[in-house]
């Protein structure tokens, strides 16, 4: 089961490994990307390629989580997709325990700016969730207890309270005026 919004049709990526590389080139590229993702846990590249590889990586991890390392077909799938064989251990010993109780997708994708001057490609970043790297978007420091912010917040509340009081007084005043207005200007 894929826990993210994926494309309905596959991208053929006809020149994934050079012009005319065809379906074989596409699969070869996908295997390299999945291997790199499991190895480095965060990779950067062109958006269509990473988006395509994401589905295969998710499916691979999902199979491993569901069936474990004693299931022969799963091991065959893992052996096919992981070009570097030490990653088989990583998949079953590190990633399966990490994602056992996961309720979201195992991977996450970020859009990156197009590099200019360059090929004009839409770039992206693909990462495994809960990886050991620093956050892509750094956590902001809490500043509400900063002395200046505390003082300004208190001043703002003070101002709003005063304004409510004055509005209350004004509304009393306008109520009377509208009352007199309705009595004087009665429609025909």
């Amino acid at each position: 089961m894929l826990r993210f919004r994926y494309r309905f049709r596959q991208r053929n990526l006809p020149s994934a490994e050079g012009t005319g590389s065809g379906p074989a080139g596409r699969i070869s590229k996908m295997r390299k990307l999945v291997t790199a993702l499991i190895r480095h846990e965060r990779i950067e590249g062109k958006h269509p390629y990473l988006d395509e590889a994401r589905g295969y990586a998710e499916r691979l991890i999902d199979e491993a989580v569901r069936n474990g390392d004693q299931h022969k077909p799963t091991m065959e799938i893992a052996n096919y997709w992981l070009l570097e064989k030490d990653l088989l251990h990583k998949l079953f010993k590190v990633l399966v325990p990490r994602y056992e109780n996961a309720s979201t997708s195992y991977t996450k994708m970020w859009n990156l700016p197009t590099v200019y001057p360059g090929g004009g490609y839409h770039m992206a970043l693909l990462e495994l969730r809960n990886n050991p790297w620093p956050d892509v978007i750094p956590q902001q420091r809490e500043v509400k207890n900063n002395l200046i912010n505390v003082l300004i917040k208190a001043a703002k509340e003070d101002h709003e309270k005063n304004q409510q009081l004055t509005e209350h007084k004004q509304s009393e005043f306008t109520d009377q005026s509208t009352d007199t207005g309705t009595t004087t200007s009665q429609s025909p």
Binding site: R141, E142, N145, N146, L147, V150
Partner: peptide, 14 residues
């Protein structure tokens, strides 16, 4: 110090 996330104590001390 004053830029701590919870700077309540330094603020009161100041």
């Amino acid at each position: 110090h004053f830029k701590d996330e919870d700077a309540k104590i330094p603020n009161e001390v100041l």
